[in-house]
């Protein structure tokens, strides 16, 4: 679709759309205004300049980027299989991928505990063999946020792969490119914008994850306490700290999302 064509689309949107869209924007804007209204601006720096906040920030950064990395490494192949391979039970696998979106995160965290905890189905043999305990460690945080956020990557990339014109892959194959080369040099660049969008969504979900993390990985400052957990704890004691932390999260997320949307995700 050329730029000229899109600019010649319907110039006047339906009035009902404008009104309803405005309602939606206000709906998103109001909580932000509430947050800003309660922000203790004068104490902001001192509230955020604590070791607990710094630890939570670092942990959230590590965990969210680890989640994006793991989701990409295993999620892209999964999306490819779902989009391209016709196998029995594909609908079931796709439903399984959707599960973390449907499950309340706390339940997801408990389920992870039952599976990968020290007494879990898989966790117990793992613990007996290696002494590794996943909960109450940074590994637990990474596992919890990855579990909850990976569906965004898989769904986005699968959709993109379905829209790829497979004739280009055939063209590459006819030129002697094997499966991996075709994927790397043709398919991947074609789904690039969608992959980036999926990674950003995954990151956004990971950075905000609370329920599964606190249930599976627990809450210990400097060990497993991510920013959302710090916010929750702060909310119990000092609302100013909670507000300041929330504002920090909003600022980080908006920066990343707006920058990426503009730089990476601009439609070709």
């Amino acid at each position: 679709m050329s730029r000229a064509q899109s600019s010649h689309g319907p110039s006047r949107p339906p009035i009902a759309f404008v009104v309803l869209a405005a309602i939606a924007v206000v709906f998103f804007l109001l909580p932000l205004i509430g947050l800003l209204a309660r922000t203790p601006w004068s104490d902001l720096v001192s509230l955020l300049a604590s070791e607990v906040v710094a630890d939570a920030l670092v942990l959230s950064a590590i965990a969210s980027f680890a989640a994006v990395t793991i989701s990409t490494v295993v999620g892209v192949p999964l999306a490819w299989v779902l989009a391209r391979v016709d196998f029995r039970g594909r609908a079931l696998v796709r439903g399984l991928v959707l599960l973390p979106l449907v499950l309340p995160p706390v339940v997801g965290g408990a389920a992870l505990l039952f599976a990968l905890g020290r007494r879990g189905v898989v966790g117990e043999p793992l613990y007996e063999a290696t002494g590794l305990v996943l909960p109450f460690s940074i590994w637990g945080v990474v596992i919890a946020v990855t579990f909850v956020s990976m569906p965004f990557l898989v769904l986005t990339v699968e959709g993109a792969l379905r829209n790829v014109d497979v004739r280009f892959e055939g063209a590459a194959a006819s030129l002697g490119a094997g499966g991996w080369t075709v994927f790397r040099r043709v398919t991947l660049p074609m789904i690039g914008p969608s992959l980036a969008a999926g990674m950003v969504l995954t990151w956004a979900r990971a950075i905000g994850e609370f329920g599964a993390t606190v249930t599976f990985a627990g809450n210990l400052a400097g060990e497993t306490q991510t920013l959302p957990l710090a916010v929750f704890v702060a909310l119990e004691t000092n609302r100013d700290t909670a507000t300041a932390l929330s504002l920090l999260m909003v600022a980080i997320s908006l920066t990343v999302l707006v920058l990426l949307r503009d730089r990476w995700l601009r439609p070709q």
């Binding site: 055939g170 194959a173 006819s174 030129l175 094997g178 660049p189």
Partner: peptide, 19 residues
Amino acid sequence: PDERGIGVVFQDYLLFGHL
């Protein structure tokens, strides 16, 4: 296909637009 050694000029050419 990648081992056939057949050169194909495809309909619409299918050039790789990103390259």
